[in-house]
Amino acid sequence: MTANEDLEVLSAYLARRDDGALTEPADVIVLMGSAVVESVEVVADAYRRGIAPRILVSGGIGHSTRHLVEALAVRGVEVAAAGRAEAEIFADLLRRDHAVPDAALVVEPHSTNCGENATYTRRLIDRPQRLVLIQDPTMQRRTHASFERAFADLRGTELRSHAAVVPSIGPDQVGAAGNGPPIWSRERFTSLLLGEVYRLRETGYGPLGRNFIDRVELPATVLAAFHRLSASRPPRPAGGD
């Protein structure tokens, strides 16, 4: 397989999209902060269509924050961003550009990684609910695993994931398929994908490693693509978190 095909394999696997996530009714849409500004429109559209009556925006200041600020500038989006949590920025965009009322928004501005997104969200939810998780596509599968761990004690909770965009991989840059400016350089995108597969392994963030998530069964095709792509570079976690 070519490097591009291997990237497609990893990207498609990590960008988890569950059937019915944005078509069946839910109680809360949980939007994770990230550098993927397009996720705001995805959530706003789901809210307008009545998928869920509440939006919980989770994300503090972390490794993606400076990339978010850069993405806003590239897109010409004027919003107060300096020194602010990703969740606060996204909530402002939902209010201002999509008329989402304050009553429908809950902002969690302290989490700095996927695990904390899940842990801090769990603290704000005290009964079983149907949650739709919206995240940067490179982190969607690990986010789902983190929420499964955090909500294991709240029996009856339903989790569905929907990666905010489907990445389109070009020779130098990667963006949302058929829409808008690039989101990542190809080099950064590659590093992020390799870092995510590393984290999802049992010896990464799984039970035999840092024990942040439960065991994730990685398909053989994903592991093979990971090994081929990382053969000439150390399989280090990229991007923090």
Rank of each mutant, 00 (worst) to 15 (best):
H110R: 01
L194C: 12
A21D: 01
G206E: 08
S111T: 08
H98F: 12
L22T: 01
T143D: 05
D27M: 03
R122C: 00
A152R: 14
R127K: 01
V28Q: 02
P167T: 15
H98W: 15
G156I: 15
I89T: 03
G239C: 06
L10E: 01
P167V: 12
Q129W: 05
Q173G: 01
L22E: 02
R210F: 11
L208G: 01
R141Y: 12
E41A: 10
R236E: 10
S191H: 15
D126Q: 04
L194D: 08
Q135F: 13
E5K: 07
V40K: 07
L194I: 14
A73H: 01
Y198M: 13
A224N: 10
T157K: 14
P53D: 02
P128M: 00
D92H: 11
A224P: 11
T119F: 03
L193V: 08
E148H: 09
A152D: 12
C114V: 05
P101E: 03
R215D: 03
V30H: 08
L154M: 15
A12W: 03
L192W: 13
H162Q: 14
A150K: 11
R210M: 07
L93H: 08
P207T: 08
Q173M: 09
E38T: 00
V107N: 00
Q135S: 11
G204L: 14
Y13T: 00
E187C: 03
E38N: 03
A103Q: 08
V36N: 02
T143W: 11
S168E: 15
R96W: 12
S58N: 03
V222Q: 09
A104S: 05
Y13G: 00
H162C: 14
A82V: 11
R215W: 11
R95A: 03
R236F: 14
V37N: 01
A71R: 06
S161A: 15
D136W: 13
V57Y: 07
L154F: 15
A44W: 11
A85R: 01
A238E: 12
L200C: 09
S185R: 12
E196F: 10
A91E: 03
L56K: 07
E5V: 05
H98A: 02
E86W: 04
S64F: 12
T143K: 09
V165Q: 13
Y47K: 04
E108V: 00
V174F: 06
V69D: 00
V174W: 06
S64A: 08
L208A: 11
A87P: 09
V79E: 02
L14G: 08
G240D: 10
V30W: 08
D18G: 01
L94R: 09
S161F: 12
P171W: 13
N179K: 14
A152I: 11
E88V: 08
A231H: 13
S230I: 10
R96T: 10
E116I: 02
T143P: 09
L192M: 13
A12E: 13
A46N: 03
G204S: 08
F151N: 07
R123W: 03
G20E: 06
I29R: 04
D97E: 08
T121S: 04
P237M: 12
P171T: 14
V43T: 07
A104R: 05
A44G: 05
